[in-house]
């Protein structure tokens, strides 16, 4: 193999998985498109349709009290639910309190998940609350919130 070929191989090998045909998404799916601005209250209303979510210990929000790094803050939301077709968690929403867009992610679950949990990592621009809003299949909304201190840590 010539030098050039080796690099060609490196190039093509990494590009293979990139292109697939566009999928059609279900109606009613409003996908975010541009840089967004939305404050916390507007975001909350958009999710609950104006309903007041109920504080519940069925929702466990796990995120650090002090973040080691604002760019990577682990968040795990677990909901106590049987996840049966008649009683399941429809959605888990994660919101932040002070980023320019309060919405982080909406996760729409189904009974096929077996357990209601979602885990990810988010960016926080500074010390603020992280909130989980949970929608149950009967239309009720639950909420859990925690403050996360963001500091500039360590060297470099």
């Amino acid at each position: 193999m010539q030098r050039r070929d080796f690099f060609k191989k490196l190039g093509t090998a990494t590009a293979i998985a990139a292109v697939v045909p566009t999928m059609s998404f279900a109606a009613g799916d409003s996908k975010p498109t541009g840089p967004n601005k939305m404050d916390y209250q507007t975001a909350l209303n958009a999710i609950t349709g104006g309903k007041t979510p109920v504080k519940s210990d069925k929702v466990k929000l796990k995120t650090p009290e002090i973040a080691e790094n604002g760019a990577v803050v682990p968040v795990t939301v677990t909901v106590d639910s049987p996840m049966t077709p008649s009683n399941y968690v429809k959605a888990i929403h994660i919101l932040n309190g002070k980023n320019s867009n309060a919405r982080c992610i909406d996760v729409f679950l189904t009974p096929a998940n077996g357990k209601a949990m979602f885990s990810t990592r988010i960016k926080l621009g500074g010390t603020q609350n992280v909130t989980a809003v949970v929608e149950l299949s009967d239309g009720t909304f639950l909420i859990a919130s925690q403050s996360v201190k963001v500091t500039i840590g360590g060297c470099g």
């Binding site: 009290e65 002090i66 080691e68 682990p74």
Partner: peptide, 15 residues
Amino acid sequence: QFAMSDADRAMYAEM
């Protein structure tokens, strides 16, 4: 005051 708790560190370790 600004030191992270063991629980916080454990969360990062889990990652």
